[in-house]
Computed example of a mutant assay.
Amino acid sequence: MKNCGADLRSARAGWKPAPQNFHINFKRRGKTMIGDRQAMIENLYQYQGQYTLESRLYKTSVSSFMNGMLGEDLQESGCITAIAIFQPHDSGKAMVSSKQKGILAGLEESCLLLDNYRSQVSYHLAMKNGRLIRDGDALEADEDPILYLEGIIITILEIERTLLNILQRMSGIATEVHELQQVIKNCGSHSRLAATRKLQWGRMDKKAFIVGGGLSHRRGLYDTMMIKDTEIDFWQYLDDSQVDQNTNDLRLKWVLESVQRCWNQRQNSKGLIVEVQSQEEALVVARTLKELQNNRYYPCSIMLDNFSPQEVTSTLEQCRAEGTYDWTLFEASGNMQGERIIQFAQTGIDVISTGSPTHSTNVLDIHMKVLK
């Protein structure tokens, strides 16, 4: 494995746009997928087609969020500064561009915003979503234009901040994810990043994560079963046989019972993800999942929560030795950010779940410039 301790920022030099038209067949099952870990990963963690405006759920979510931002910004009075200075019919032109290198995201959402004002403002796109934004400078001719606006000045000023917030934040997330994924690839690792559900902007954050080349955990509680510590901890209220039993033995018992119950209801789920706290739990769950699948693959993943890189490596090696590795994916979670992500990628883990790009976002320097 290569030494990947170099500054993560160096990854930007070799950026390529993330693919935007890839769709995985979520229904693919069976033994033919065994051994093709990338297909297994995308089968369980790929949701790209669900985060476009063609999805009614996503479009409704984005519209509601943007209306909230605009309502908070404008209230009933609108932009009182613009109204004081300009006449209702005054018109002008502007360009939205970037001075910073990165991956463009949020363009589809920006168009949805602008379409609500089409009678007052027209727009022309100069770039596609997911494209690499080059460095610009103070000269207009050398900046990288994203879109052009023309229309009522008051309206342009009223939607300016919401429009820029969308592009800046979503592009910032996409850029960081792409940067991290590029470094992981340069390490010779097949590990993929997946967004958690710890989000400030909900589905829009996940969309940006995906545009950057990342994957996603379940959209919500309704589509993929995931057994977490919380579910296991509640077992203490159901199990009357816990007196004088070893705590670890009890927990393992509850984990396996939860796995069995979820397995019995798997027809309503995209897959099954099981969080474990120790190597012993991971090995037992891996054996159980292989046995339950009975030579017919069903998407499963074991989440190694708060494991060290050494513990992850040891667990994967043991699963390979026992013949359970091919029947389930393995995911690392717990304070995943920066160099720590790279350390875990070098273990050979399949998926690294992280909320770092979404809750610690470095927004991209995108601005609006008035044109003559």
Rank of each mutant, 00 (worst) to 15 (best):
L114G: 02
A94Q: 10
N165Q: 12
Q46A: 14
V363I: 12
A194L: 12
K31G: 01
H217G: 13
M40R: 04
C187D: 02
Y123V: 03
W327L: 05
V363N: 04
V121S: 00
K198C: 08
I34Y: 04
L304I: 03
P357S: 10
G355S: 14
E317F: 09
T230D: 15
E317D: 15
R28A: 12
V62Q: 05
N248A: 15
T224R: 05
G5K: 00
K253E: 09
Y123D: 00
L199G: 03
N294K: 07
Y222D: 03
L371F: 11
I146L: 10
Q46G: 14
K198S: 08
P299S: 11
D135F: 08
E281G: 04
F234V: 15
N264K: 12
R219N: 13
R203D: 04
L304F: 08
C187K: 06
K198M: 08
A208M: 06
D142V: 14
V274A: 08
D326R: 01
Q337K: 15
R296V: 13
I24H: 13
E160L: 06
G136T: 03
T155L: 02
E275R: 05
D240R: 09
E76H: 13
I154V: 08
Y45K: 04
T315V: 07
Y123T: 01
P88Y: 01
F22P: 07
E176G: 04
S122M: 07
W201Y: 14
G188T: 04
G348K: 02
T361A: 05
D350T: 06
Q87S: 14
C262Y: 09
Y47H: 12
Q346S: 11
A11V: 06
I302S: 06
N306A: 04
Y298R: 06
I273Q: 02
F344H: 06
Y222R: 09
P357M: 14
L238N: 15
V183F: 10
C111G: 07
H190F: 10
S333P: 03
T52N: 07
M95W: 04
G338W: 10
T60H: 10
L292V: 02
M1G: 12
